[in-house]
């Protein structure tokens, strides 16, 4: 990529405890270009949400960034002070989250809230901000913006509220939008709508999107690249098509195998009650190791069918593989198997 909008290099985050720092994110590097959509995928507790917050310079205590840089349009956000960060947040980098109800102010109309988000960053008149708000509501495909402007959040459906959150996040026309599981709280049909909205917006406006999710299947249709995290480290980063066609890391294989496939694609393992094939989903045995009990070698070794002595002793370094990187001692061979 020639000139990434957002470049993360060697980012490490640790929780400060009485027994010393517990690393939660280790040596994470990735970059996103203009209009590109990157998914960060991983199980709960793998450090993906922490990474999302770090991208905005907001690591919650007792967490602390212990190394690395987060460059947004060339500026290292981690070196900025709080006042400077405030001008970057919402204006150059923005975020939407899982639960749009609790993130909206119940006593303000959605229009007022979006207007405030505009006025926070730009010295425009209220009239101009109002017009921009109506345009934003239209852009996030909210029907009848003039009427919706005066609605309170509790009168809207979950999907509508998430659209409002997206409008607020886009109010400052940011270069990067971080989406932390924005569809998890929504119905499946609404999920698809919100995802394609984000997809359309990044194509229209060239916004780079970092999409954080635990659900590989949800994002596969929309994102350009996928970064798989496991226990705070990047284990594989590939172009989406390649990753699904031919995953290298055993963990990635496990994640893909754990996805429910379409009914038609399933082998006929025996008819279910409604004549539908029933098949148990493949699961990855075991759980993510606790931060305090991280193995010295590959963190996935205890759950990995391919693990040997080398995996238990040394952390596999990321190496080029196909259209990206993979961090597995057995990547080449396992591929052959």
């Amino acid at each position: 990529m020639s000139d990434p909008v957002l470049a993360v290099d060697g980012l490490s985050i640790a929780f400060q405890t009485r027994r010393g720092p517990l690393p939660a994110v280790r040596d994470l590097s990735f970059s996103v270009g203009r209009g590109e959509m990157l998914a960060i995928v991983g199980e709960s507790g793998c450090g993906k949400s922490l990474t999302a917050l770090a991208l905005l310079g907001l690591v919650p205590p007792p967490g602390r960034v212990t190394g690395g840089t987060v460059r947004l349009e060339g500026r290292d956000l981690l070196a900025l002070d709080e006042a400077a960060l405030r001008h970057v947040r919402g204006a150059r980098i923005s975020m939407i989250f899982q639960e749009p109800m609790t993130a909206l102010n119940p006593v303000l109309t959605v229009g007022e809230q979006i207007m405030e988000a505009i006025l926070e960053h730009e010295p425009v008149s209220r009239k101009a901000a109002r017009e921009r708000t109506l345009a934003l509501l239209e852009r996030v495909r909210i029907p009848d913006p003039a009427r919706r402007f005066a609605e309170y959040p509790h009168r809207m459906s979950g999907g509508m509220r998430q659209r409002v959150m997206i409008a607020m996040a886009l109010a400052g026309a940011p270069a990067v939008l971080v989406a932390d599981e924005p569809t998890t709280a929504l119905d499946v049909t609404i999920q698809a709508q919100i995802l394609s909205l984000i997809d359309e917006l990044r194509r229209e406006q060239g916004t780079a999107v970092v999409f954080i999710t635990h659900d590989l299947g949800v994002v596969s249709r929309y994102v350009d690249r996928v970064l798989v995290m496991y226990a705070g480290r990047k284990v594989e980063e590939r172009d989406t098509r390649d990753l699904f066609a031919d995953p290298f890391h055993p963990y990635t294989k496990g994640l893909i195998a754990a996805q429910p496939r379409g009914l038609a694609a399933r082998p006929q393992a025996g008819p279910g009650p409604a004549g539908v094939a029933r098949e148990r989903l493949t699961e990855i045995p075991g759980t993510v190791p606790a931060l305090a009990a991280m193995p010295p070698g590959c963190a996935f070794a205890p759950r990995c069918p391919l693990a040997d002595d080398r995996c238990v002793r040394t952390v596999p370094p990321p190496r080029p593989a196909g259209s990206g990187l993979v961090a597995c001692h057995h990547a080449g061979e396992s591929h052959a198997i």
């Binding site: 405030r86 919402g90 609790t102 926070e120 607020m168």
Partner: peptide, 17 residues
Amino acid sequence: NSELAQASIILGASDAR
């Protein structure tokens, strides 16, 4: 500590606001 305040911080709102 509510998500509302967190969301406002993330969108760059000032303390007074």
